[in-house]
Each structure stands twice: as structure tokens, then as C-alpha cells.
Amino acid sequence: MGPLIPNGVIPYEWSNIIAIIIGIAFGFILEASGFSSSRKLAGVFYGYDFAVLKVFFTAALVSLIGILYMDYLGYLDMSALYVHPTYLWGAIIGGAIMGVGFVAGGFCPGTALTSVAIGKIDAIIYVVGIMVGVFIFSELFTLFQPIYEGSFMGNITLMDSLGVNRYWFVFLFTALAIVIFKLSDMIRKRTKKIFY
């Protein structure tokens, strides 16, 4: 049955409307969770607030388990899902640039747009910086293209690259999440005295 749009259950013309609705709902949830606060987001790096880590780890885990169950029950064909192609060096360099921007500005692109929607000036400056970066990248694309398109690894998943059975991967990912949640609680308790 699923995915719904590729299998014709929902007409392709609805894809942009559905994307907008999901985007608005995602932004609303980010704001309701307090993720429009750069202090809350930067708390992960300083050890006093791990809400972002826990929420996104939980979302990834619930999505992964949900997709596997839907596939197992025959409601979803995992092989028909889109997997973004992996360009190794582009991903590493882009991830490093975004990581530095996240630590320096206290926002990721999604949370920055959520904060812009409620009028935060620091987020507006951050998004202007993103737009300047996108403009520079697009204008100098021919210079960056060998790095951007280099080390193409295909449409692989983490399960594929590790060579692990998908059910074992879910088990290991769940165990890792539990360990990280426990460690983050221990770190937060130790740093609580410093920041509060």
C-alpha cells in the first residue's frame, strides 16, 4: 500500500500541499517543544540541556521501528522509499560547516526558521547568513562541484554501510539510545551546579 504517492493512493499533485502541511506541523511542534530557544539548543554542547538530543533520537527510533513494522505487516514497501544519494566528502564537509554554525549560532536551519516565525532577531541574522552562504555556494558551484559530487557511494543506508541485519540494527540503535540517554542525564546532573 505505501508509500502512498508513488503507489498512486494519493495523487502526485498533492505532494507539495502535503509537504507544506507537514512542514507547518513540524515547525509548530519545534516551537511548542521550546526548540526556538538558542540557549536550549546550545545546551547540548555545554551539557546543561539534552532535550534536543533526546527528542531527535526518539523521533529517529520511533520512525525506524514504525517503518520496519509497516513493512513487516505489508502496509509499506521499504524498497520503494527514497534514499538520498551519499556523496561522502560533501556530506563530511557540509556536516562540519553546519556543526560549526550550530555551535556558533545556536540554531540549525529548521529551528532557525521556527525562531524567525516568532520574530527572534538572532535567528533572522542566522537565516540571512544561511542565504548568503547558499548564494555564494550556488555562484561558485563549478569550483565546489568536484567535492560536492566526489566519493559517490550510491543510495545507501546506515544499515547497508555497516552490513548489519535491519532487525539487529534496530536492537543496537535502541540500546545505544538508552546508553546515551543515561549518560546525558549523568552529565546534566554534574553541570547543573555550574549553570543554575
Rank of each mutant, 00 (worst) to 15 (best):
I121R: 13
K120P: 00
M98L: 12
V52W: 07
G154A: 06
Y87S: 01
G133S: 14
Y126A: 07
A60M: 15
F57C: 14
I136P: 03
I93N: 00
Y82N: 03
G101F: 03
L41E: 01
F107R: 05
V55T: 13
Y69K: 08
D49S: 05
S151V: 08
V103T: 11
A96L: 12
L88G: 13
G150S: 12
G94I: 04
D71N: 02
Y72Q: 02
I92P: 04
G99I: 13
A96M: 09
L76Y: 06
S115H: 09
V62A: 06
I136A: 15
T142K: 07
V132I: 10
Y82Q: 02
Y82A: 10
M98T: 14
I121M: 11
I147S: 15
H84D: 10
S63C: 09
M131E: 12
S138Q: 15
G119R: 00
G47I: 00
A112K: 01
P85F: 00
Y87G: 01
I118V: 12
E149M: 06
M153V: 02
G95A: 01
M153W: 01
M131Q: 14
D77M: 08
Y75G: 00
F107V: 09
D122R: 06
Y82R: 01
L61C: 03
F56L: 04
P85M: 02
G129M: 04
L88D: 08
V62G: 08
I65M: 07
M78Q: 08
P109D: 04
F50D: 14
L140R: 15
T86M: 14
A112D: 01
G66E: 05
I67V: 05
N155R: 13
F50H: 07
S138P: 12
M78W: 14
G129F: 07
I130Q: 03
Y46W: 14
G110K: 07
F141W: 09
Y48S: 04
A42E: 14
I125A: 04
I124T: 12
A59Q: 09
S138L: 14
D77W: 08
F135T: 10
L76K: 01
V132Q: 04
L73V: 11
G95Q: 00
D71T: 03
L88R: 15
L113V: 12
V55S: 09
Y72L: 05
Y75N: 00
I125V: 06
F107I: 06
V127Y: 05
I125R: 09
Y72R: 07
L81G: 00
L143H: 07
M70G: 00
I130R: 04
G74H: 05
A117F: 04
G94A: 05
G43I: 03
Q145K: 10
L140S: 15
G74V: 02
D49L: 07
F45P: 00
T142R: 10
